[in-house]
Design a protein around this nucleic acid. Structure first.
Lengths: 207, 207
DNA sequence: GCCGACGGTGAGCGAGCGCTTAGCGCGGCG
DNA sequence: CGCCGCGCTAAGCGCTCGCTCACCGTCGGC
């Protein structure tokens, strides 16, 4: 009863940048626990137990429980931003880039739902400085999507009266996937990504 | 430093069905605290303090902290379902009814954001039986929206390849308003409701 | 004008929290 | 082969949590 993270395999093995091995095991255990029960309802004893270690082992690799959340949130936001940047900067029309951005962003939120849940819903548990850092990353996320929408409007591909409001709605739609998506449900991450890309193209008048 | 609930006045004064007065004050205090910090991070001492009472007073009106959450969640879901039912059963085309449902549902999530946040995001903190009861209400919420979409498809007003998936997306979009909406931000609940109604009509091919 | 009932308080219980510290086992180097 | 240092554990500290209990003020009925 240990490995449970490789369910929704996809892009490059996650958390590989976290070393040494014991620190990564603790972090993966924390992601699962935070996603299941929430940050405040998760105990350091639970995290250490899932990683097969004693409670004290956690504090060799992390100063506090909050530092664990901060690291998870930081790495997760970096990954999400990387996904959107890749889609935004590829070749193609604004329509193609927006569909790509939405489908890959949604695939990540569905396929790596545990991580996404922690990243998107536990922001308030961070202290002021860590929180401010993450909010900066979120502004960059917003800017990437808004950029594609603006390109589409400028090129005459899209019909969008309220660019900022529509950008907000598109991101909101994608992010909420982490709340409702069920791994045992009838839909695959890929299917939801495709459906959502179509819906978003309709929202910007390019369906 | 007591009253802080009548900020986003709108439909009939909420929580009026909760009596006696002390029980209502405790419940309103709990809604604010749960929305700000989350259920698990809120202490019974904080709730009682916000209501101007001693910690022990809470247990005269509620058996446990979880009973408070259950009552809030139950009343909130009833209200949300009532809003959707009213829109779904009025006279008019499916397009008009869907726009009405989305705009009023969104207005509630934005205007009564503290309540909506607790209702939509603290479900997992409930025990199994209470949770099952609330999930039943959520299925009714889904059925109301799906009904309007099906009507629109049958009447030839909408073009929707995946009715269930689109219904899910519409509800998801509305619910996530409770996560990002900021009372001090640039948008009023009414403006967001109008924008979202337009976006949803585009999603169903009736924009 | 006394009395019971009810809504409320002050103090505190057992438990579990985040985190610390003293010490142990083991692998690499001289 | 002996010893040092690093990764880890067992035990537990101080604190706060949800919740309880003995008691008290006020107010309507006789």
């Amino acid at each position: 009863m240990s490995t449970a993270a490789e369910t929704t395999g996809g892009e490059a093995e996650p958390w590989e940048e976290v070393t040494p091995d014991a620190a990564r095991r603790l972090l993966v255990a924390a992601v699962e626990a935070f996603a299941e029960r929430g940050y405040h309802a998760t105990t350091t004893r639970d995290i250490a137990g899932r990683a097969g270690m004693s409670p004290a082992a956690l504090y060799i690799h992390y100063k506090t429980k909050e530092e664990l959340l901060h690291r998870i949130s930081r790495i997760g936001h970096d990954k999400a931003l990387d996904i959107l940047r890749t889609a935004a900067r590829r070749e193609g029309s604004a329509k193609e880039r927006l569909a790509d951005a939405v489908s890959s962003f949604v695939r990540w939120h569905a396929g790596r739902r545990t991580t996404a849940r922690v990243v998107q819903y536990e922001l308030d548990a961070l202290g002021p400085e860590a929180r401010a850092e993450i909010l900066g990353l979120r502004r960059q996320v917003d800017a990437e999507v808004r950029g594609i929408v603006e390109d589409g409007v400028a090129a005459g591909e899209f019909d969008v009266p309220d660019v900022q409001g529509t950008t907000l709605a598109v991101l909101s739609l994608c992010i909420d996937v982490a709340r409702w998506f069920n791994v045992d449900g009838p839909r695959t991450p890929e299917a939801v990504g495709e459906l959502y890309a179509e819906l978003v193209l309709r929202m910007v008048g390019a369906g």
